[in-house]
């Protein structure tokens, strides 16, 4: 669920960058304060391990397909939330830079979606209180699966929020959720299974390698975790619902294409205002595409300025510019001297 730059707006990308960067800086400081210098190589190598682990799959019984380790949860179990968040962020950065897997401006979103939830929600509030001391018990397995599922559901939900708020994809909020949620439920179960298995093995082979959970096996943190998850999801849903009083009906109507345009119009405008204030290209930044055009043009759905780029001269000019760019590219190529 790595988001690409193409689907997000600068306002959303910038907000999430700020959030992730702040969290990253805080984690970096926390790690320094532990004075555990061993973490430096350990974090780097475990990041590489997460990459490498994806080369080995296991077969999922009865499905004919295979799954692999996700990363976030097992890192949090092995390293604790702060170091784990930094490692996840580094893995995502390398994926974006080398594999074009997730964009650079979307990196803030991706780090948040795949790092924050497993490291700071699923691990401390779900896995830690529920897993118990013995990592090989069914209870520990259940905890890993539940934690992975919740972490991924929150992440997937954020993807939907960020995409919808960006307003570039036409997918309405409700149906996007319906699309993402079941897929990530399945991924979560697979990741939970893989995590639990590997952790159980390591805990058996070398108990000191897996930090034991802090003694108290109380359910309170788990309930808090579930509460936070519910709040995030509920809050977002109600936000959208208040923009559209008829809630889910709206999203279904939207899919069928009959209801008025205007996905998350309210949120969109709010963000647009934020953006104006933060002055990302104030005049042009973020044309509120859904804003109903004032002219009473025929057709049920008023349309924003689409015309500018679609004139003949626009197309001719576009081709010309591409031609120039291509020629420039050829001209700029370094002449390689035969060596």
């Amino acid at each position: 669920m790595h988001m690409a730059d193409a689907l997000i707006s600068p306002a959303v990308g910038g907000t999430m960058w700020a959030a992730s960067a702040g969290l990253l800086a805080w984690c970096a400081r926390k790690i320094r304060q532990t004075l555990d210098h061993r973490l430096v190589p350990m974090m780097g190598v475990l990041g590489a391990f997460i990459f490498a682990s994806q080369m080995i799959n296991f077969s999922i019984p009865g499905t004919g397909s295979s799954g692999h380790l996700g990363g976030g949860l097992i890192l949090a179990i092995l390293l604790g939330p702060h170091a784990a968040f930094l490692v996840i962020a580094s893995v995502l950065t390398v994926q974006a830079l080398f594999f074009a897997d997730g964009g650079l401006l979307a990196l803030g979103c991706n780090i948040w979606n795949l790092g924050f939830y497993p490291a700071f929600i699923a691990f401390p509030f779900i896995y830690k209180p529920l897993a118990g001391a013995n990592r090989a018990t069914p209870r520990a397995w259940a905890a890993a699966i539940l934690a992975a599922v919740i972490g991924l559901q929150l992440g997937a939900f954020s993807v939907v929020l960020e995409t919808t708020a960006s307003g570039i994809s036409e997918l309405p909020f409700g149906s996007f959720v319906l699309l993402m949620s079941p897929v990530h439920l399945a991924i979560g179960i697979v990741e939970g299974l893989a995590t639990a298995t590997v952790v159980a093995f390591v805990a058996r082979a070398r108990p000191e390698a897996v930090p034991s959970p802090a003694g108290s096996a109380s359910l309170k943190p788990a309930l808090i975790g579930l509460g936070i998850a519910a709040l995030i999801v509920g809050g977002a849903v109600s936000w959208f619902a208040s923009a559209h009083p008829d809630g889910l009906e709206w999203s279904i109507a939207k899919v069928s294409g009959r209801e008025e345009v205007g996905g998350g119009a309210a949120l969109h405008e709010k963000l647009a205002r934020v953006q104006e204030k933060t002055a990302f290209l104030p005049d042009y930044g973020f044309q509120p595409a859904e804003e109903p055009a004032a002219e009473g043009e025929p057709g049920p759905e008023p349309w924003p300025a689409v015309s500018a780029g679609t004139t003949v001269s626009g197309v001719v000019g576009g081709l010309l510019v591409l031609l120039v760019a291509g020629a420039a590219g050829l001209a700029l190529r370094p002449r390689r001297v035969a060596s």
Binding site: L281, A289, A308, G309
Partner: peptide
């Protein structure tokens, strides 16, 4: 990246440069 992403979502031709 910021410049490219800041275009309205139906913009195609203006992205060419």
């Amino acid at each position: 990246l910021v410049a490219v992403m800041s275009f309205p979502r139906h913009e195609v031709v203006a992205l060419a440069p």
